[in-house]
């Protein structure tokens, strides 16, 4: 009985702690929603795999230290200091740049769920096939909405 009670208490504590420990910071949340990655997993807000911190940061816990794509995004904010996150993210992706120089543009890497700031992480499909798939899907989210 006491073991069961202890287990229940422990489970309760874990559940209480979960929202604070696992909640996505707001920029990750916004990016996931903007790019449609929130559809990948019903529990995406609790998943470290959906729009992980290393999409932009060098460390898994985020914070200071930006990878090549993160630095592109920072430059985008400086170029448009009064624009909101979605506007800046969209304009950076619309440049069709390849921040990590792995041969795949950043927007295609997000489409393929690989990391645009890490050259070791790149899509398995050939660039041409992935580009065709991306365009067939409508391109960037706002372009898709217009089509």
């Amino acid at each position: 009985m006491s073991v069961r009670l202890g287990g229940a208490l422990l489970a309760g504590l874990v559940l209480l702690a979960a929202p604070a420990a696992l909640a996505l910071p707001k920029y990750r949340t916004e990016a996931a929603r903007f790019l449609g990655h929130d559809k990948d997993d019903p529990l995406w807000q609790l998943s470290g795999k959906v729009m992980s911190c290393v999409a932009c940061h060098t460390q898994p816990q985020g914070g200071k230290g930006w990878n090549a794509f993160g630095q592109s995004l920072q430059a985008g904010f400086r170029a448009q200091p009064t624009a909101n996150f979605r506007t800046v993210l969209r304009s950076v992706l619309a440049k069709n740049a390849d921040a990590d120089a792995d041969g795949y543009p950043d927007a295609l890497e997000f489409f393929a769920r690989t990391l645009p700031g890490d050259p070791k992480s790149k899509p398995a499909k050939p660039l041409r096939d992935l580009q065709a798939e991306f365009e067939k899907a409508g391109g960037l989210p706002e372009d898709r909405a217009k089509k």
Binding site: Y27, F77, T82, A83, T87
Partner: peptide
């Protein structure tokens, strides 16, 4: 909520 303006502060804080 929402005042943690690490990036693009003007848009967020203005709103």
């Amino acid at each position: 909520n929402g005042f943690d303006t690490h990036a693009g502060q003007r848009a967020d804080q203005d709103e």
